[in-house]
Amino acid sequence: MSVKGWCPGAWRPMMSGDGLIMRIRPRLARLTRDQILGLCALSQSHGNGIIDLTSRANLQMRGIKDDDHQTVLTALQDLDLLDTTPEAEAKRNIVTTPLWQDGDLTTRLHAAILDTLPQMPTLPAKMGIVIDTGTQPILTDTSADFRFECSATGLILRADGALTGQAISEAEAPRALLDLANWFLDTNGAAAGRMAKHLKSTPLPDNWQDTAPNQAAQPPQPGGTTYGAPFGSIDAAALAALIQNSQATALRVTPWRLFTLENAQPCAPHGFITDANDPLLHTHACPGAPACASATVDTRALARKLAKPGLHISGCAKGCAHPRRAATTLVGNDGTFDLVENGHPWDAPRATGLTATDLLTPAS
């Protein structure tokens, strides 16, 4: 089992069991009709036809052959879905609320932060920024280290792991971000790797925690023109058909295995989830074997049969699909499953050596 200390990109893909994984980071998590149809075509012609939704509102093409990497990069550049350099791509780790409107605070902050990124110091690879500046934050469970949110009196920047943030004006936001990033590095935060972990051992100055954010709200649910993807896995052909049949003009990605279509007409869901209570939307499962070289078990076929809220089926102990506590976690181990209850994939199991047949057989 190999644990990577970074996330794949387009310039710097990651090799998996089914080929290269290339991550696309759409600006403001939005793709135009031409961009999403182009991405679907690329996935089918150069990948395995599967596009993943990530927990940071990005998209991943899977199964890209090594020899096709440059061809796909050129195509992404033509679609305006590629940063100019690998370094620019690595720094642009930003998640925005999907509820933004043209010209609002979120879009203005996003533009200002993009202009600021070249000045940002080099941070640990998985660190990121959230712009969660609707009336109420909805990205509180989304992985990030620097959180722009709203309070009862205005804008704040909150270090992840702190309950409160620093009140700032919109004009002060870029400088505040740079100051907090430099404080993190100056206090040896790089050794911890993430802001929340760093704050467990290093006190945050009082001036960075003087204002509470507004109370968090529930994120959007599937229904209408918002669709869910089981396990965050999208069949590119099905998505292209949905875009064409609905006449959608754009697509917005979310961190919750959901995507929203803009200006879409009612049509068949093409296998996507439209019911907020569908158990598949609340079941976690990584691609498993043979797609992932670290996995020794087929995860998703079993997950579809056992689907229920609080279930996580992981191909190995890394727990990539849900690196958090779950009510029931089944962890692949040398071709069988270990059972972890109310824990993480890497926690001690209550039972080991379970087969898929064992798990599908009702208890007598």
Rank of each mutant, 00 (worst) to 15 (best):
G315I: 00
A173H: 10
T336K: 08
N48H: 09
R62K: 14
T187K: 08
L185F: 09
K200Y: 01
G228A: 06
A176P: 04
P220H: 02
G335Y: 01
I64L: 15
M120E: 05
T226M: 11
L359M: 03
T225S: 09
A264E: 14
R25G: 03
I156M: 07
T352N: 00
Y227I: 04
D66L: 11
T361H: 11
L359D: 03
C292H: 05
P220R: 01
K65N: 15
L31Q: 11
P287R: 12
L281V: 02
Q215G: 12
G38F: 04
A327E: 09
R62V: 07
L302N: 02
A295P: 02
M120R: 06
E172A: 15
A348L: 06
G189Y: 10
G63M: 05
K197Q: 09
Q166E: 14
F184G: 07
D52M: 02
S143M: 09
L251M: 15
R33P: 02
E170C: 04
P13K: 05
A326F: 01
W6Y: 14
A196E: 03
A240M: 10
P121Y: 13
L177F: 08
G271Y: 05
L99C: 04
L28K: 10
A351I: 01
L59A: 13
A240Y: 10
G315M: 01
E89F: 08
A152C: 09
A191F: 12
Q209G: 08
L281D: 00
L109P: 06
T274F: 08
G335M: 07
G223M: 04
D338L: 03
G228W: 00
T85L: 14
S246E: 11
A238N: 07
P121R: 11
L178W: 11
A167Y: 01
M14T: 04
T96N: 12
D298H: 14
R92E: 13
Q35M: 00
G223E: 06
F259V: 08
F337N: 00
D278G: 07
L242V: 06
Q60L: 09
D334Q: 15
G38I: 05
A192Q: 06
T254A: 14
P118K: 09
V253R: 01
G224C: 06
P266M: 14
L76T: 07
D18I: 00
H344P: 00
L354I: 10
R25Y: 02
H110S: 07
R252A: 04
Q244Y: 01
G19H: 09
D275R: 13
N93F: 13
